[in-house]
Structures are given as C-alpha cells and as structure tokens.
Design a binder for these strands. Sequence first.
DNA 1: AACGAAGTGAAGGAAATTTTCGGTGGCGGC
DNA 2: GCCGCCACCGAAAATTTCCTTCACTTCGTT
Lengths: 302, 302
Amino acid sequence: MKEIFGGGAPPAPAALAAKVRTLAPSMTRSMQRVAEAVAGDPAGCAALTVTGLAELTGTSEATVVRTARLLGYPGYRDLRLALAGLAAQQQSGRAPAVTADIAVDDPLADVVAKLAYDEQQTLADTAAGLDTVQLGAAVTALAAARRIDVYGVGASGLVAQDLTQKLLRIGLIAHAHGDPHLAVTNAVQLAARDVAIAITHSGSTGDVIEPLRVAFEHGATTIAITGRPDGPVSQYADHVLTTSTARESELRPAAMSSRTSQLLVVDCLFIGVAQRTYETAALALSASYEALAHRHRSGPSR
Amino acid sequence: MKEIFGGGAPPAPAALAAKVRTLAPSMTRSMQRVAEAVAGDPAGCAALTVTGLAELTGTSEATVVRTARLLGYPGYRDLRLALAGLAAQQQSGRAPAVTADIAVDDPLADVVAKLAYDEQQTLADTAAGLDTVQLGAAVTALAAARRIDVYGVGASGLVAQDLTQKLLRIGLIAHAHGDPHLAVTNAVQLAARDVAIAITHSGSTGDVIEPLRVAFEHGATTIAITGRPDGPVSQYADHVLTTSTARESELRPAAMSSRTSQLLVVDCLFIGVAQRTYETAALALSASYEALAHRHRSGPSR
DNA sequence: AACGAAGTGAAGGAAATTTTCGGTGGCGGC
DNA sequence: GCCGCCACCGAAAATTTCCTTCACTTCGTT
C-alpha cells in the first residue's frame, strides 16, 4: 500500500476541514459521505464508534476506516482523537462570546461563565492599577506596627475581617471594627507606631472615614483601600491603594466586583507583610495550622 | 442516600486538570500515579492505550479504567478523547509566563502579578468544575425557602456572611452562624421548606457538619459547598457544590484560593436566586441601595 | 495475632477496530 | 449483445483494545 498523501505527513490537527475539501474529488461516493459528516460535525462524530459512524452515513465500517486512512491517519481511532481535539478547539474559540451582561433569562451555565469571566477581569484590572510604591509603603508600616485597626462596613466589612484574620495568623495584633462608634472609640487609642486601614469602595462612607480621621489626627499611619482615590477618605490617608471600579449591572451589584478587587489588595498586603516578617510569620502559620487539625473529623483521609 | 458526585455531570472537557486536583486526595496511590501522568502530559497520554498507560505508570489496566471512572468518564476511551481535546486546547492557548510559586524574596510587583494570576486560575477551575445541575437544584431550593441558615467557621465564615448579606438584600430570610452551638440550636428549628448551607473547604469541619446534620435530619434541604465532595459533609447534603482545590504554598495558604472559589460559587447562587425571584429581588435591591445613600458623604461625586 | 476492608493486578470476556475476501455494478472491448 | 476487467463496497473473520470479575496482597483494627 502506498502513501497517497504527503509522505510522512503527520496527522492533521485543525487543518482537517481543509484536507477534506482537498481530497474530496479523489474520493468515492461513500467515502465522501463519511468525510462530509466528519467535517460537518466533528464533535458529534467524535462521540461515535466506527460502527456508529458507518450507520449514520449509510456505509460500512470498512469504508470509514478507508476514509480515515485517506485523511492521513493510521486508522479510525486516531481520526477520532483528532476530531475530539478539533471539537475542543472550536469550543474554546467560541468561549469569548459571553462577554455580555448577565440577563434575567440566562441559563445557569452562562451565569457561571460570565461571573467567572467578570471577576477574572476585575482581578486583572486591579493588579494593573495597583501602585506598588504605595503598596510597599503600606506593607512597611504594617510590618512594623504595634497594633492594627481595620475599618469597613457592609461588604467591605467582610474584607476587613478577612485581613484581620490573616494578620492575626502571622502574629500581628489586628482588629476589625464594624461598629462605627466602637471604631472611633478605639481609634483614639492609636498612636505613632500604629496603623489604621479604611476599606470603602465608594470612598465616601462616613462610618469608615470618621475613625480613620481620628486615627490620622492621633498620629497613626493611615491606609485607605478604595475604588475612588479622589474621594473624601483619601484626605486622611497616608497611603491610598486603589481598587478597580468595575462595571455593574442590575443583577450584579457593584459590591461583587469591588469585593473581589479589595480582597486581592488585601491578599497582596498580607503576603507582603508575611515576606517581611518571614521568620515569625512562617512559625505562626504552621502553629495555627496545627492547632486546628483536631477540629476536623477523621474522614476519608489520604 | 444521594449522589455524592455530580449526578448527571457531563464529562469535563477543560476542567480536567482542576478535577484531578479536586479528586486527587480521595484517590489511592496507584490511581494518583495515573492521574498525575494524565494531568502532566495530556497529549502524551492521549496517544497511549489502556495497556500503554498502565505500563507507563507501573499499574494495571484495571486501575487506569478505575481512575477514568473516578474522573467522571464512562471508561478509558472517553477519558482519552477528553485528553485529546485538552491537548488541543493547550496547544492553541499559550503557556503563561509567571507560573512559579511566590517566593520570600519576590518583589512586590511580582507578588501582585502572581496572586492575581493564581486567583484567576482558581476562578477558571471553579467555573469549569461547577456542576450546573446541582447548582440549579440549590437555586431552586433557595428561591422557595422560608428560611435559610448558613454555617461556616474561620475563613469560610466570612463567605457565609457574604452570602447572607446578599440574600437579605433581595428579601430572603437568611442567617449566618459562626458559633457552632448556636448553629445547632437553630438548626433544630428548621423544617421541610427551609434550607441549610454548610461551607467548608476541607469537607470535614465538625463545627459545620454538625448543624448541617441536624438540619438534614429535621427535613430541611441541605447544601454543602466544599472542596472535598467526598468528605463527611456530603453525607448530609442534598446538593453538593464543589469548589476548586488549588495548589498552595508556604506563603500562600489554601484559605486564600478556597475563599476565592467559594465566593464565586456563592455569587452564582445569589445571581441564580435573583433571576428566579426577579420581581421582588430587583425591587429589594434598589430599595436597599436607596436606604444606604445618605450614609455617604457628599464628596466629589463626579 | 487474627480479622476485615480496601487496594491491586491477572486473566478472561466483551466490544471495539482492522483486515480479508467475496459480491456487485459500471464500462469498454470483442 | 455478451464478456471480462476493475474499482467500489460491505459482511464477516481476525485482531486489538477495553472492560469486568475474582483472587491475592496490604494495611489498619479490634
């Protein structure tokens, strides 16, 4: 048996449709039917066995195999693999189509895809817009802080707690304040070596600005994490870290992407501090891990 | 007893790497070897037969087939097809530049880039691995719920609060319970039309499983959001939503990516419910927005 | 130390793929 | 008009690949 097509030609990955067209004239009728089916619906054909494809095209198994050979594959098995690859490729190529807003009647699969995509976008934006100089200054202040107070209400309050939890785990003294009154009361205690952090997307949340102002006036180092660096909060902030202001829609409130953005900033702060205080941080981290181990059921461990 | 794994879950196309990571902990040694080979070199493995892969990994054909089954495919043949697809996708999409771990001496700019990249990856994995059937069922239960209780401790506790905040904003009755004792006490009150949600990365956090069990036994619809769908928590869950299990490093604790993953799932739940209850949800959302407006200073509001 | 459960691979059985081979129909020559 | 050649095709055998069953090993348990 001699090679019909290019000598040692490797099986075609994506150039399959083209190959079908090229070779079609030299094919017999039944082979053309098979080739047509294959080129028309790669994904569907990839799911079929030789017998299945033979029946679908009204031909025999032998013909299917012959077609596969003609297309340059050792046999049907390999054609099928190439087909699966092709299907996957055009599948992923179609993906970026879901950039649109989330609609009320979107199927859940679309919701998942769009949300994930949006949040990925938010992360990219945030990373791109983050001022590493300001970040570095903030990290330095935190690493040397005697005490750290974090202010945030609503959704930002959770971010504040997240930061606090993490800082505590590496041995720093941090508090998250959700209650504005208590926050102010505590802010009065802060002094030169302390750090106060305000987290607010709008940059104009009074409940958060007030304690920051007090801390600022008492000489603490103040940091603002906000989506509006030109907002009132920056007035009392030594360092401003900007979160991305993402598009929101009716169904997708701004809180969602601002939260993602804020968390990334907070994570960066944390990692930065952990780097600076590596000796103690690593120790504290493993210690807290050990302490929690017994709280887990013995489940299927492995 | 109900399905532990995604019931009608269609075989994963690109979610394979994520699935391997998710399921790896629950695998036996030899299966892990197979999974590792598969995840490490999709293209190469796609070229091998069962026997070939078995020899390569030093195991038996039976083990290879078992692994394929565990990953959600009917048999090795289908895993092989998916592998070919994955290889084709990887081929077209170029490998990213910064895949390395975060090191102690990384400059801050790198930290930001790596963190953002990792979280993006986590989002993609989570979206790919999320079972939309389970998600849909969970959404349906939530939309019709009389009362919703959410359990979570530690970092997952914040996610629980986030979900609760959002559900409250669209007019649902939701509570987040951090205290295990109070959680159990309240779980007793739950009945048929109520929903209980447990959030735990490890899937074996006793403090969270216990209230879920109580809720389950009192007839409430139970949902588990976990990175270990085979963990003890799934025992008492009507619906299991899987979060991605990402690589962690010394500096970057698992809590970080699991939080990102959990938040995406929670957001999907929220949007899903908001869609179903659009009439009331939209109203409630704008109402809560209005109510908050006066808490913002009049700052430079462009 | 004995028991049991889970993990593993070898061998046999099922299903797929590939090859072989005989039948059919078209086409030109006698 | 009949015959023979040849390309085309498919049924069934041959082979490879895949799946299932079962017995053996290993590890943890009581």
